[in-house]
């Protein structure tokens, strides 16, 4: 057994990706932000882009992601990451520029920026963590909160009369001609996590090939503000979120298939 082998003979089967900094994160136990960080970092490592990647962190629980990735990083104002990424990318076209945004950031306060980045076909990538709630500020309703979902600002459950309907961002952005690669994945089990990783890698390749705008939406958990255990939260994603936010490829232009 591996465990009994002398250290020199041991084979590394799992280790921290280079693109991930060797520090503790502040994420709550069971939060899938940690998983998506790892997937992004693995993709960067595998594409060998560590020295050329730039993350535009956003305002939300991932606000400190600039600390967690061992790559160049900046921090945008709430919702403005796609605009900041645009600025960066226009003057550094051979760099990998991506945003890492929550649903409040991307689908509420920053809707204009994300839509126009996609419409311009800006060759940047958005990693969009959709956990159907505002995590950072303590569990308010998000644009992606489900009808009936109780949050601290929809205490009686999200009423579509008062708060309208959740936004399916992948579907919205897929309508725009500047979008090259728009997919939705989930982080609730191993199979989906593997698929998510592949999608992130593809999105980065799309960007580096200059094909246009790319976004990977990741259905994610917030056990803390959902008031659930980590495993119940994963079940909730599978049973409640996935039916509302179907997983799949919403826009994949032909050139992507040739990559």
């Amino acid at each position: 057994m591996m465990r009994d082998a002398p250290i020199s003979d041991r084979v590394v089967v799992y280790e921290r990706p280079q693109a991930l900094a060797d520090i503790h994160t502040h994420y709550c136990p069971g939060c899938t932000h940690g998983i998506s960080h790892r997937l992004v970092a693995e993709a960067i490592d595998e594409l060998g882009l560590n020295d050329r990647a730039i993350i535009v962190a956003s305002v939300g629980c991932s606000v400190f992601s600039y600390n967690y990735f061992d790559i160049d990083a900046c921090e945008a104002a709430h919702g403005r990451a796609p605009a900041m990424a645009t600025g960066l990318k226009r003057v550094s076209p051979d760099r990998l520029v991506f945003t890492y945004q929550g649903d409040g950031d991307l689908a509420s306060i920053g809707t204009a920026e994300i839509i126009h980045a996609a419409a311009r076909g800006e060759p940047v990538t958005a990693v969009f963590v959709n956990n159907a709630i505002y995590g950072m500020t303590g569990g308010q309703m998000a644009p992606t909160s489900l009808p009936g979902q109780k949050t601290t600002s929809s205490p009686f459950g999200r009423s579509t009369d008062i708060a309208g309907f959740p936004i399916r961002m992948s579907e919205v952005l897929a309508e725009l001609d500047g979008s090259a690669y728009i997919v939705r994945r989930s982080l609730h089990n191993v199979k989906e996590i593997r698929r998510a990783k592949k999608a992130i890698k593809t999105a980065f390749k799309v960007q580096m090939a200059g094909l246009g705008f790319s976004m990977v939406e990741l259905l994610s958990t917030c056990p803390t503000n959902w008031g659930m255990s980590a495993s119940d939260a994963l079940t909730w994603v599978a049973d409640t979120m996935v039916p509302y936010y179907p997983l799949g490829d919403y826009r994949v232009i032909d050139a992507v298939k040739d990559l």
């Binding site: 509420s108 505002y134 500020t137 303590g138 308010q140 601290t152 600002s153 205490p155």
Partner: peptide, 11 residues
Amino acid sequence: YPITPQTELLE
């Protein structure tokens, strides 16, 4: 719109 340290007001 939610923002700390004001959020309880909105809530």
